[in-house]
Design a protein around this nucleic acid. Structure first.
Lengths: 253, 253
DNA sequence: CCATTTTCGTTCAAAATCAATCAAAAAAGG
DNA sequence: CCTTTTTTGATTGATTTTGAACGAAAATGG
């Protein structure tokens, strides 16, 4: 036997990752073996969930980790979240130290961050830290007690840790944005963490999709002028209202 | 000719690290020995968890998380890991403060920990923290830089944090257990963390399946008498050797 | 719609590889 | 030097892998 089963199958997977799809006949030539053997390899790889067989070849399995597919459909403003995330990542420059708040809005930023070199990201989100490490970004996870519902680390320890840091930019998710009540979130402890971050960051961004606009949650994080609001560009009137409110506040100051 | 055996096996490992896969026939030519000898070497290396044998040769052991389903089949000492994990969890009493080292051995403990009420678990493993939170165990994740290969948090910050804590029991995974060299692990930074934990814990357990026995990795954590060795109960002679070694050490002291 | 072509799944025999065993060679230890 | 243990290479039958053949199923093209 000239080539090992394992070796052939690795080649198939490699070819699949490049093109997304492979033809059976091409594989026969590339791998230098009979069509039966290729068939068997594809079968086996499919059984192991490594690919999906189609007529005449096979295609990549598009699972994108876990099942956000189901989640994406149920939550309606995913597109908005994606746009906001992309917008947010565009703000980041090389060599900067970034804080990423735990939450789905900030988590959406990570796929756009691949290749952003020589930045350091500090976060209190366990999921986020894991994903960041996956795309080879230098990641610092703050320590403390783990909140099991949101997989975020919160508490006094976190505030203390953050007070020892200094960030170039901070990206913070919020549940409510209101002209009068400012930025709000349900959990007071989380609000405290977010406030600590604000204090230590040169520039802060608040991520909120349109569903959060004009909403008020329980715990106040900060007033509107504490940072830049990132949102999808609908509701121009509302945004202008916010801008006006900010100007008024700054005039008062 | 014991030296030659080792030499051959080192060559096999080296060739494996270059190509990711080796063919039996190629090895016969490279190593200038019979096919039977190569077979025996591969068998031995597989028993020690250095590679995975496939038809016609052998492939590198791929740690990349993939599905544990595939891994479970190829790696045979999963049962051992499970037994060790169960044994370890049985040690834990109510109201205790536990440290769980990052790693697969300790991660295996988590499923057995459901229902263990009013304990606090401190860990430097991101995956572990996430799973612990899932089963509603109070979890504290130490902060610091994330190592992207093992998803463990390591470095000076971790040592400093741990020095402020006190544990009732600590469970530590090791890569090598040796009569003379004690407990060892590949990464010196991880070794430093493990040492710090040892210092702060009333009682420490080292988790090692049989494949780790009589092995020596790079960085030393501690001598054999630093804690209790948990392993599956095969290799009685080896275990007795370890016990004897410990007694000798304590006599000397 | 049907006819043609391509691809698929199954079966089978040949070839390659494997695990187990055994005796010779080499090494170790007195 | 001789005995014991370890390592090695060869042999055997069992297992796995491979390529080819053939009817069934699916795509293609009028």
């Amino acid at each position: 036997m000239k080539v090992l089963t394992e070796e052939r199958q690795q080649k198939i997977i490699r070819q699949l990752n490049e093109n997304g799809i492979v033809k059976l006949q091409d594989l026969v030539e590339t791998l230098n073996c009979s069509i039966s053997t290729v068939r068997r390899d594809l079968q086996e790889l499919e059984d192991h969930g490594k690919l999906v067989r189609v007529h005449g070849g096979a295609k990549q399995i598009t699972t994108l980790q876990s099942e956000p597919g189901v989640l994406e459909k149920s939550s309606k403003n995913v597109q908005g979240k994606q746009k906001i995330a992309q917008l947010a990542v565009q703000q980041i420059k090389a060599d900067e130290i970034i804080y990423l708040d735990a939450g789905t809005s900030t988590e959406a930023m990570i796929p756009f961050m691949t290749g952003l070199d020589s930045i350091l990201v500090v976060t209190n989100g366990v999921q986020l830290a894991s994903k960041l490490a996956d795309i080879n970004i230098k990641t610092y996870l703050v320590g403390g007690e783990l909140k099991n519902t949101t997989k975020a680390i919160i508490g006094a320890d976190v505030v203390e840790t953050i007070n020892n840091f200094r960030f170039n930019r901070a990206f913070i998710g919020v549940n409510g944005v209101h002209r009068k009540f400012g930025f709000t979130t349900p959990d007071p402890n989380e609000a405290a963490v977010k406030r600590a971050v604000l204090k230590q960051s040169e520039l802060s961004y608040f991520l909120a999709d349109t569903s959060k606009l004009n909403e008020v949650s329980f715990a106040k994080i900060a007033a509107l002028n504490a940072g830049v609001l990132l949102t999808d560009e609908h509701n121009h009137e509302t945004l202008q209202q916010f801008e006006q409110a900010k100007k008024v506040m700054e005039a008062k100051r």
